[in-house]
Design a protein around this nucleic acid. Structure first.
Lengths: 216, 216
DNA sequence: GTTTTGTATATTGTATACAATCATGAACGG
DNA sequence: CCGTTCATGATTGTATACAATATACAAAAC
């Protein structure tokens, strides 16, 4: 088995995107090609190719002759993403509904329980990971990879949210509400109510949009 | 006023994407970097950058070390796109509904009439252009540029459809049905029935998915 | 003191050169 | 005759060099 080398541009892409996701690079920060070259020990060619791809994928803005900057994400953008996520997430649930196996349902139940435990223990990060698994479980059953990838991409817009801005008590309250929504989604799945779960999921996003969106 | 020169990579991007949209390049065709360089009289650097962007935007596939190929679009892909378009188009209509001015409504009415005339005259291409205007009219009022751009991008998947594969009579029949749907959308807009138009538009896509999709 | 302008420096855009890998096909062995 | 091996050329990946433009700062004009 050959060790097929990944192109350098992909490494650069991962390096930059993970730094953005981790919040080490903030909106508006300028990315110097040379600085990235020095940091990673590669030439400008793969760096530029990665930056172009990152811009195309929404991570960066490009301004010709003025380099690349981390794309901002203001409240207006957040609203836009929520307005798109709702219908898409709902559609994913709708499509997945008839495809969910008993094992999937069991898995979803387990995850809802796990999220409850995480909330009781104040483990917000943990909750967040499980929550992602919950959604991925039915995304992966929707039979539409393009849809799944689209939603995943939109979700990344919110990965870099700050866990510390909300106090523990408020967070628990919000998360409890969110998890009761998960429980309801699960019920609709069990009842195989495809259109019901579609509309419910869509409207849940809508309601979150009108609330704060540091936690969802 | 400065003559701000567009980067060469953008020219290359336009050149390739338009050739794909026009059907001059078909699914699976390999794109030789050198051939593009020769055709456009530029070096490989801007060509490669354009190809990377085109791949990132869904036009091409990349297979490392094996170059770029025009991404195929089979029936499975078409179904996936329809399943995404429906909810998004519906959401755009939903969001636009309260924003539509009287002038917009008048414009939409005019376009529906124009489409009828185009159908009577057998001008399928003309119909298609007007149909695009019809949808753009409310996309531009949905107040969500990201959503609008997303839908536009998905629409391009179908631009390269073949007008000649369907005989004139069948086409007219299908288009008449499609335009009656436009008329109904218009009615719902006039009644300011946001949720109604949302669900109707969504379901119309769904029905088209289950019909042929050489015409929509 | 503020604005303008010019020059030096830094950065991006493009071209070219080289290295690594892949595709092709001929020679060879079965 | 068919499949394998191995050279040869073609193509991609990466590095570097040069050109074009933008930025920063200092000096001059108002």
């Amino acid at each position: 088995m050959e060790t097929l080398r990944r192109p350098l541009k992909d490494h650069v892409y991962d390096y930059i995107s993970s730094r953005i996701d981790a919040g080490e690079l903030s909106a508006g920060d300028r990315l110097s090609e040379q600085a990235i070259c020095d940091a990673m020990g590669v030439s400008r060619t793969p760096v530029r190719e990665a930056l172009i791809q990152l811009a195309s994928d929404g991570y960066l803005d490009n301004l010709p002759r003025r380099g690349f900057r981390v794309r901002g994400f203001d409240q207006q953008n957040a609203v836009e993403v929520f307005e798109i996520m709702g219908p898409l997430d709902g559609q994913a649930a709708y499509l997945a509904c008839p495809n969910l196996t008993d094992d999937d349902i069991t898995q979803l139940k387990f995850l809802v329980g796990s999220m409850d435990l995480a909330i009781q223990g104040g483990l917000i990060r943990k909750y967040d990971d499980i929550q992602r698994d919950f959604h991925l479980t039915y995304f992966n059953r929707c039979g539409n990879d393009r849809l799944r990838d689209m939603i995943s991409q939109l979700e990344r817009c919110f990965i870099k949210r700050d866990y510390e801005t909300v106090d523990q008590e408020t967070a628990c309250k919000l998360l409890n509400k969110a998890n009761s929504e998960h429980a309801h989604i699960l019920e609709l799945f069990e009842a195989r109510d495809a259109t019901g779960v579609r509309d419910y999921v869509r409207d849940v996003h809508w309601n979150r949009e009108n609330a704060q969106f540091t936690v969802w």
